[in-house]
């Protein structure tokens, strides 16, 4: 009987580990962030309960009629998304401070852009999950059937959330070493986000109430897309400067 030859793993001395492609690096970081968030649920739980509390408080404070809800729905929803988003975004880089994980991430053989994009992607997914819970809750609290213009609404929310996430992730990285980071992120981020939030609010209000997008709303869509493109490009270009230690 032939004895099978013992297969030995080739000894890799001095060999470089295989480099992942940019996309793989990005997805690896995003998946790492999502997995750690799913295990600890530290940001998403806080964000969700905060969002529901704001929705409840608004309803209690104003008791809006159907017409009033029509007017305030876009603004209310995006204020909730923005506030709830700040909780997720604040944790995005702050989570890496323990055990010097941030230094390890920066020293890892991948570009800052991949690290940033991965983090932004994870934040986008988390924030979208919070929004996906908030919308039906909003519908129930305010007696609105929110899914009548589902796909346009989903598109607008995705565009707005990406703007929110990109700017928020840059500022999360920028403020991570500050003593006042929980304070500085909204102070710096929200004013820059105003055009994005305004466009999203103007588009969301009619869509949530079941009205289709009209031609005059097209400029808001253009603004939202332009904002996303400009700030994504700027963020990718500048992130190396932010990450240097």
């Amino acid at each position: 009987m032939a004895v099978p030859a013992v297969r030995r793993a080739p000894i890799r001395t001095g060999m470089k580990p295989p480099r992942l492609s940019f996309l793989r690096q990005t997805l690896t970081v995003a998946w790492k962030d999502l997995r750690s968030e799913l295990r600890t649920k530290e940001a998403i739980n806080a964000s969700l309960s905060f969002a529901v509390v704001i929705l409840l408080l608004f309803s209690a404070a104003f008791e809006p009629t159907e017409d009033q809800t029509r007017e305030i729905s876009g603004g209310l929803l995006w204020l909730v998304f923005a506030f709830a988003g700040a909780l997720i975004l604040n944790r995005s880089f702050a989570r890496e401070l323990a055990n010097d994980c941030l230094d390890a991430l920066i020293a890892a053989p991948m570009s800052g852009a991949a690290l940033f994009l991965g983090k932004a992607l994870a934040n986008f997914v988390l924030l979208s999950a919070v929004e996906a819970v908030c919308l039906p809750v909003f519908g129930a609290f305010y007696n609105v059937h929110v899914t009548r213009q589902f796909w346009p609404l989903a598109g607008v929310i995705a565009l707005g959330t990406w703007g929110l996430t990109v700017v928020g992730t840059v500022f999360s990285a920028l403020t991570v070493n500050l003593r006042l980071r929980e304070l500085m992120l909204p102070v710096l981020g929200y004013p820059i986000l105003i055009p994005c939030l305004l466009a999203a609010m103007h588009l969301t209000a009619p869509l949530v109430m079941g009205d289709p997008l009209t031609a005059e709303l097209a400029q808001w869509v253009r603004l939202l897309v332009a904002f996303d493109v400009i700030f994504s490009a700027l963020a990718l270009a500048l992130i190396e400067s932010v990450m240097v230690r």
């Binding site: 840059v170 920028l174 070493n177 500048l238």
Partner: peptide, 20 residues
Amino acid sequence: TERARMSAVVSILAFADVPI
């Protein structure tokens, strides 16, 4: 130097708002 780096990034992002 950290202050200079971070504020430079913010200044560039802020100016992107000026065309709007």
